[in-house]
Design a protein around this nucleic acid. Structure first.
Length: 207
DNA sequence: CCAGAGATTTTCT
DNA sequence: GAAAATCTCTGGA
């Protein structure tokens, strides 16, 4: 996982089409990633948890690339990130959406335990939904990706290559203020699992 | 289909 | 005490 030592901005698009595999509670669930967002380090990115420095919550963002950063969002959802960059420097890529390719039944059961699934594409379309579907909780925070671990990451056999044109970019969802301008969201075009982009609050006001 | 608001709790100012 | 990298349901067009 050499490339995870790069900045979150470099790493984010490379994670598109990668497989995120969870082996939790004795079941394998595999997710093909279709949408991600990059978050940078201290004083670099007003939208990042690390903007004001290291705290207890965001300390995993300062680990070496290849670790997991899980945080609680709005008091009720878990969100999972792939940590990027060298040790001591904050950076992470939020996994926003994907398609469950293995373990659909388990994923569906986990999702139905807390919410509803209107259409198949909604199984893991959203950071909170992904964690519910894969069984990811705060217990995983700070762990390392790897074979025989709770979470592992597998790059696509074929690099995106010609599919490079199929990658879209936009501002991040739900990030307001100065950070709302930054085009740090990457997604695969034409994917059913990618949510319609909701403009950041500032974009809304400037139309 | 879309906009609006509630749920719920941790974190930081 | 306010805000938060969200999700779901409700009500109106």
């Amino acid at each position: 996982m050499e490339f995870l030592g790069g900045s979150a901005l470099e790493v984010a698009p490379k994670l598109l089409n990668a497989l995120l595999v969870s082996d939790i509670d004795g079941t394998i669930v595999t997710l093909r990633i279709t949408e991600v967002e990059a978050y940078l380090g201290v004083a670099e990115d007003p939208g990042s948890h690390a903007f004001r420095g290291k705290t207890e919550r965001n300390s995993s963002m300062f680990l070496r690339g290849g670790h997991v950063y899980v945080y609680r969002s709005y008091g009720m959802h878990w969100c999972a990130n792939v940590v990027a960059g060298p040790e001591g420097e904050a950076g992470a890529v939020l996994v926003r959406a994907g398609e469950v390719t293995e373990g659909r039944e388990t994923a569906l059961a986990r999702r139905l335990a807390t919410g509803t699934v209107r259409r198949p594409a909604d199984l893991a379309s959203g950071p909170g939904r992904i964690c519910a579907a894969l069984g990811i909780t705060g217990d995983i925070d700070g762990q390392e990706f790897g074979r025989d671990r709770a979470l592992s990451l597998w790059l696509p056999r074929e690099p995106l290559g010609s599919a490079r044109a199929a990658v879209g970019t936009s501002t991040r969802t739900g990030v307001g203020g100065p950070g709302g301008f930054l085009p740090y969201r990457s997604f695969l075009l034409g994917e059913e699992t990618v949510s319609r982009h909701r403009p950041s609050p500032h974009e809304k006001t400037t139309k």
